[in-house]
Simulated scan of single mutants.
Amino acid sequence: MAVVNAVVERSPEQVWDVLADGHAYSDWVVGTTEIRAVDDGWPALGTAIHYTVGWGPLALRGRTTVRQVEPGHLLGLEADAGMLGSARIVIELSEWGEDTVIVIDEHPLRGPAYWLHSAVSEVLLLVRGRPMVTALAKLVERRHPA
């Protein structure tokens, strides 16, 4: 499984504030070019973010749906990329002294991405995950100055 983490010098509540802003996902989720819509009540169970990933003729419209939620602590998402399949993404927040450890666990769940999952695709998920968790931490720090 592709698991990445980062420490952010902010509280779990401040990190959750950014996760609860569905329009902010294009600011930190690698590859997302546009947030087309965010369901009312995001990130309540069953709500979704509707996004575009990629550019030009390679653009793909997708949807990410909340499958698990523990406000301030855990957000379990299913990112559905249509014919490519879907991925399970779990974002976990843990107090670390006065800071927060953000852990993002992402792996294929259904469809071709799941069937073709290998060590190579795992490396690609890790290459994508590291800048993603770093961008999330930086966005939290910008929104909540020390």
Score class of each variant (00 low, 15 high):
residue 30 V to C: 01
residue 26 S to A: 15
residue 43 P to E: 01
residue 137 A to G: 04
residue 56 G to N: 13
residue 17 D to Y: 09
residue 45 L to W: 04
residue 2 A to H: 00
residue 140 V to S: 04
residue 19 L to F: 12
residue 41 G to S: 09
residue 121 S to H: 05
residue 132 M to R: 04
residue 73 H to Q: 11
residue 140 V to H: 05
residue 20 A to C: 13
residue 132 M to Y: 00
residue 23 H to D: 10
residue 112 P to V: 10
residue 93 L to T: 07
residue 61 R to V: 11
residue 76 G to W: 04
residue 91 I to V: 15
residue 120 V to M: 11
residue 49 I to H: 00
residue 81 A to V: 15
residue 36 R to G: 08
residue 4 V to N: 02
residue 20 A to M: 11
residue 73 H to V: 12
residue 133 V to Q: 00
residue 56 G to V: 12
residue 137 A to F: 01
residue 71 P to I: 05
residue 71 P to M: 10
residue 93 L to S: 01
residue 124 L to T: 10
residue 37 A to Y: 09
residue 67 R to F: 03
residue 106 E to R: 09
residue 4 V to W: 00
residue 88 R to K: 14
residue 68 Q to C: 09
residue 67 R to L: 11
residue 114 Y to D: 08
residue 120 V to E: 06
residue 11 S to N: 02
residue 121 S to M: 10
residue 96 W to A: 12
residue 101 V to Y: 02
residue 10 R to M: 06
residue 63 R to G: 01
residue 138 K to F: 14
residue 105 D to N: 12
residue 52 T to N: 06
residue 118 S to M: 11
residue 77 L to E: 06
residue 132 M to I: 07
residue 138 K to R: 14
residue 104 I to E: 06
residue 93 L to V: 08
residue 47 T to P: 04
residue 76 G to Q: 00
residue 39 D to F: 08
residue 110 R to K: 15
residue 137 A to Y: 02
residue 83 M to W: 14
residue 112 P to A: 05
residue 20 A to S: 15
residue 92 E to H: 03
residue 107 H to Y: 09
residue 55 W to N: 03
residue 73 H to G: 03
residue 75 L to S: 02
residue 123 V to D: 03
residue 24 A to E: 07
residue 104 I to N: 02
residue 143 R to A: 08
residue 124 L to H: 04
residue 107 H to P: 01
residue 145 P to N: 08
residue 72 G to S: 09
residue 37 A to Q: 13
residue 46 G to Q: 01
residue 88 R to A: 15
residue 132 M to D: 01
residue 6 A to M: 04
residue 126 L to R: 05
residue 22 G to L: 01
residue 115 W to C: 08
residue 64 T to E: 13
residue 1 M to V: 12
residue 64 T to Y: 06
residue 36 R to M: 04
residue 63 R to I: 15
residue 139 L to W: 07
residue 46 G to T: 09
residue 3 V to E: 08
residue 41 G to V: 11
residue 138 K to S: 11
residue 68 Q to L: 13
residue 63 R to F: 10
residue 96 W to N: 14
residue 114 Y to I: 04
residue 120 V to Y: 09
residue 99 D to P: 03
residue 15 V to S: 04
residue 60 L to C: 07
